[in-house]
Design a protein around this nucleic acid. Sequence first.
DNA 1: ACTATATATGAACATTTGTTCATATGTTTA
DNA 2: TAAACATATGAACAAATGTTCATATATAGT
Lengths: 140, 140
Amino acid sequence: MNICSYVYFISLLFSAFAEKGKKMTKENVPSFLHLTAAQARELAKRMPEEETLYELADLYKMFADSTRVRILSALRVQELCVLDLAALLGISQSALSHQLRILKQAKLIKCRREGKIICYSLADEHVESIFRQGLDHVQE
Amino acid sequence: MNICSYVYFISLLFSAFAEKGKKMTKENVPSFLHLTAAQARELAKRMPEEETLYELADLYKMFADSTRVRILSALRVQELCVLDLAALLGISQSALSHQLRILKQAKLIKCRREGKIICYSLADEHVESIFRQGLDHVQE
DNA sequence: ACTATATATGAACATTTGTTCATATGTTTA
DNA sequence: TAAACATATGAACAAATGTTCATATATAGT
């Protein structure tokens, strides 16, 4: 957990005490918070780094658009070139190309050139497992 | 795969043939597409339903915002009431409440009332497993 | 019943995001 | 080397999303 959030949290504790004219002791907390300071520290320690959580959100952002999900879903089956993919999904070449770039930057897909055409495929097994995990949840 | 996309795809095949003054045969395809019609049908069959893919994108949308990821990350550790959570994460009560509603509607978290306060927690094991899956990928 | 506390929500606003359109880049073939 | 083909990309626009501010609802305590 980021030090900023924690500092903010602690400052809230102090100001809450100040408002009520109470003295803050190490393991005591203001009434509007139901966690003790010690519990809050413990909780914060058990959370991943703030930075990691931002990266996690960024990863899931890639799967958070139906066009990208459909692209990944097709590439799960087989490698495809841009025009085939566009025709298959019924979207414009431009829109697809923009999304392919985004997915490529996120390292979820890779591509190789074969003459005039460029073939895209999933980058690795991890992508497949993330996809399947979500699919399991959606399909109950 | 949605019938609409497939119909669109087939229509593209036909128009491509028409433009070139060729006749379209069952298993032949225009040169700008590297898939045969049969391959395209095969591929489409192996993809989940279009509707399922939209639901999948919606599911991942929940994890695609850093505030929501941080909320879920805290609730993984323990049940928390709104004000504790807001203080812990350093966000306003209002912003948090809006996000809690979104997560609740998506059935990723649940809540129970205890007097004045309302305690939130993760809805089920699936949420934890989706979270962990993404975390594994991010942390390499 | 009145006040304080805890949470929820509607509207306005700013930001982000995805698509389209026009055009650029890069590769093959005539 | 010119033309055709396959893909990429910048800019403009529209739509979706998250936060803030003000206020509403609901419960507990006096």
